[in-house]
Amino acid sequence: MQQLLNTLLTGLTLGMVYAAFALALVLIWRSTRIINFAQAPMAMITTYVALTVIDADYSYWVGFTAALLSGLVLGAAIERLVIRPVEGKPHINAVILTLGLFIVIHAVAALLFGSRYRSFPAPFGVRGFQVGEVNVALTGFGIFTIGSVVVVMLLLVALFRGTDLGLMMRAAAFNQEVARLLGVRVGRMFTLGWALAALVGSLSGLLIAGGSLVHPSYMDSAVVFGFVAAVLGGLDSPVGAVVGGLVLGVSLSFVSGYVGSELVALAALGILMVVLLLRPGGLFSHATPRRV
């Protein structure tokens, strides 16, 4: 029973991180139809920004804020300087550019910060609670992880559902041409979308790094699991991304806990294949009419 509970708690914490990363992918996909393969190295480099700030004797929270802000700026800059010039061209052009960015950002990070493993602090404890005789695998940092992702999601929901700006962003994502006719500055909305996605990606980078080791490739597996989570939920659905992340996190935690940790990547692939076979659009996809 204790193992079941702990496996579930570990899975939920992990799932929240996948959910954040998947959300970052979905934010970009639904507005531009681009899978941003550079999301992982973008998050990685902002984590290094946080580490640099923390190493300069500033608090964790200053580093945390610096990472999120640098993510915001990096996302906006990449959209304006790299993605915008290929707007209107086939989407594959932009996707290939994000793959190029993946390589470039890795190389830049290795040059600037070195390739060695470095420890990254956590603001809260990384040891589980003791309840009587039972060890509960929910840590202070785990609670922070779940809480921060929930807060970011609620803020995004408030932005998209409750503000005029969110309305414009949704309109731009659903139909660029019509949105433009109605006076929406679609390009500006896309820049903001990339910036917000990069911010959420940065958060996932910080959460994965907390109490662990970072190096230029430490986020690479996140892009695989985040992508699986996004596809699982439906690439068009932010809610789907969150649910997909949680389902994947819990599933992989059970595979790791009950079957074997070496099978985690294989299990992720299996889940992806099953979903693509049974529900190609993902769990939260909207039905689209078949073209005849």
């Binding site: 005029d164 309305l167 309109a171 659903f174 109605l182 500006r188 909207h286």
Partner: peptide, 27 residues
């Protein structure tokens, strides 16, 4: 060209944005 996944009111509000008094930063 209605936005099918936005409510009727939201659809119309997008068209009203020309009359927004506050700018991008405030929003």
């Amino acid at each position: 060209g209605l936005f099918d996944r936005m409510s009727v009111l939201d659809n119309v509000m997008v068209g009203a944005d020309r009359h927004a008094a506050t700018g991008f930063g405030s929003a």
